[in-house]
């Protein structure tokens, strides 16, 4: 089975979110980067588990500059067999998805894995675009997946519950919490990662129709109003009369 895992690089969760160049660019100064948690903890690990059980290979793919190699090496250290980096700035989800679909189409991929969203742009866009470009079924928010022969049985999160579906390979899936358990790379994995192939390919040009022009940071909250713990009637009154939320 050929399993392609899309991995994205995102700022670490405690990173300071600030902007430069007239608020048009994310300020990278002093920011640590990580692999997007949904890609790392769930998508990648489930792909590796499936390979361990059924054979085949796990390929990690990232669209981005050479500075992304650090998260790609981590994917290899956790257990991906090889990696592809498409050498271009990820300016839009359409750009990223196009590169991934191009690779997947020409490499006989059985399952394309994405995280359910990235924790920076929160778009949930790439997986559905890849699925459409490849004319494949897309199962979003998968929290459990078993594969038997050519069919996968997947439990996915829907509003207020879960849905169990069956789908034949090939397909695209986006990974949510529950699909797998986070794996920490061990020394052997880190050493082996250095010898695993990381192939760099050049991107196809894409007409990106939505790109970010500028950013704003919402104003912080006003000073908190402390309420006497013995007077919850006062809190209820404020919620009703001042905040008007009840």
């Amino acid at each position: 089975m050929n399993l392609l895992v899309c991995i994205s690089k995102t700022p670490e969760t405690t990173a300071k979110i600030a902007f430069t160049d007239g608020d048009s660019k994310f300020n990278e100064e002093g920011v640590q980067y990580i692999m997007n948690p949904y890609d790392e903890w769930y998508a990648l690990v489930r792909a590796i588990e499936l390979k361990e059980k059924h054979g085949g290979k796990v390929i990690a793919i990232n669209v981005g500059p050479a500075s992304n190699d650090i998260v790609i090496r981590k994917a290899l250290a956790i257990g991906a067999d090889e990696a592809i980096r498409v050498n271009g700035e990820a300016v839009s989800s359409m750009f990223v998805a196009k590169q991934i679909a191009n690779y997947a189409k020409s490499n006989d991929i059985d399952i394309v894995f994405c995280g359910k969203e990235t924790i920076d742009y929160n778009g949930s866009e790439v997986a559905s675009i890849v699925a459409e470009l490849m004319d494949l079924p897309f199962i979003s928010y998968a929290s459990k997946m078993m594969v038997e022969g050519s069919t996968a049985t997947i439990e996915r999160d829907i509003e207020g519950g879960v849905e169990v579906v069956k789908v034949d390979k090939p397909f695209v899936i986006s990974a949510a919490k529950g699909l797998a358990e986070q794996r920490i790379p061990n020394m052997k994995g880190i050493m082996m990662a250095k010898r695993k192939p990381l192939t760099v390919v050049e991107p196809e040009a894409v007409d990106s129709k939505s790109t970010i022009g500028s950013y704003t940071v919402p104003q912080g909250k006003q000073e908190v109003k402390m309420i006497d713990p013995e007077n919850m009637e006062e809190l209820v009154r404020l919620l009703h009369e001042e905040a008007k939320v009840i």
């Binding site: 359409m94 866009e125 559905s128 979003s140 509003e159």
Partner: peptide
Amino acid sequence: NTALGKSIAGRIAVKMDASLVSG
């Protein structure tokens, strides 16, 4: 921008050759 909305927005944008903003 619901679970269903997120699973179809990208697909529709591709079909229509449209720009896409989700959320």
